[in-house]
């Protein structure tokens, strides 16, 4: 094991560069899958005919497939049907598809957890269905969704590492390049990489706990 060689300044900046890409991909994917999930979740909650059933099937299928397969799919198979994305966007698309399927379920169960009595009260006080959804149900449901959603975001951040298979220059990819130089760098590099993921994810989970306590 060669900690000094593995932690040479050039290696550290190289890893940080990779981590920056990881964070970019994670952030964009989180933002997009949040939006998609709320839309899908609301459509399913409102039981809009046909669309709701189609989405239910899609969610069930995607949820039961490995993310790795979806990454391969968006990068290697989509070009065959004319959708061409470079690896940065292919990775984000795969993450958004997969995580939206997971998160929309969180949204749906969050919406379902709002007592029916409240909805009836809101409706009878003259609000339309959409107004009720927007002003009464969604804000409360979103608050309840925070903890499971944050833990799904943590999963997402970890899952970005799977894009190593399409050689996206993220943290894991850069770690493997350094590992390729010398076997003695492997363990020190993995250790550092683990710490980098851990710090961000653990911070996220603490923030989530704080939010949870505040709303409780």
């Amino acid at each position: 094991m060669d900690f000094i060689g593995a932690y040479a300044p050039s290696h550290l900046t190289f890893l940080l560069e990779g981590f920056w890409v990881t964070l970019q991909v994670a952030f964009l994917s989180i933002a997009l899958s949040f939006v998609v999930s709320v839309i899908v979740g609301v459509i399913r909650y409102a039981r809009i005919p046909v669309l709701s059933q189609v989405l239910a099937t899609a969610v069930e299928l995607v949820r039961n497939l490995p993310l790795l397969l979806i990454i391969f799919f968006t990068y290697f198979a989509l070009p065959e049907i004319g959708i061409k994305l470079d690896k940065f966007y292919a990775a984000i698309l795969a993450l958004v598809i997969f995580e939206s399927a997971m998160i929309s379920e969180i949204v749906r169960s969050g919406l379902n957890s709002i007592e029916k009595g409240q909805i009836e009260a809101a409706r009878s006080s003259g609000l339309t269905y959409m107004q009720t959804l927007w002003h009464v149900v969604l804000p409360q449901a979103l608050r309840r969704m925070v903890p499971p959603m944050v833990s799904q975001f943590i999963s997402l951040l970890k899952d970005t590492s799977l894009a190593v298979v399409i050689a996206l220059p993220e943290l894991m990819n850069h770690a493997q390049i350094i590992n390729g130089r010398n076997v003695n760098y492997v363990i020190p590099t993995f250790l550092l990489v683990a710490v980098m993921y851990f710090v961000v994810n653990y911070a996220l989970s603490i923030i989530s706990k704080r939010l949870e306590n505040r709303h409780a």
């Binding site: 094991m1 943590i154 970890k158 899952d159 970005t160 590492s161 799977l162 190593v164 894991m172 493997q176 590992n179 076997v183 003695n184 492997v186 363990i187 993995f190 990489v193 683990a194 993921y197 851990f198 994810n201 653990y202 989970s205």
Partner: peptide
């Protein structure tokens, strides 16, 4: 629990695949 939950699976797998042989 806290450590493993917050790092990616592929990293754990790589540790077993190329990390352990290094020692």
């Amino acid at each position: 629990v806290e450590f493993i939950r917050n790092i990616p699976l592929i990293l754990v797998v790589f540790v077993f695949f190329v990390g352990l042989p290094a020692i």
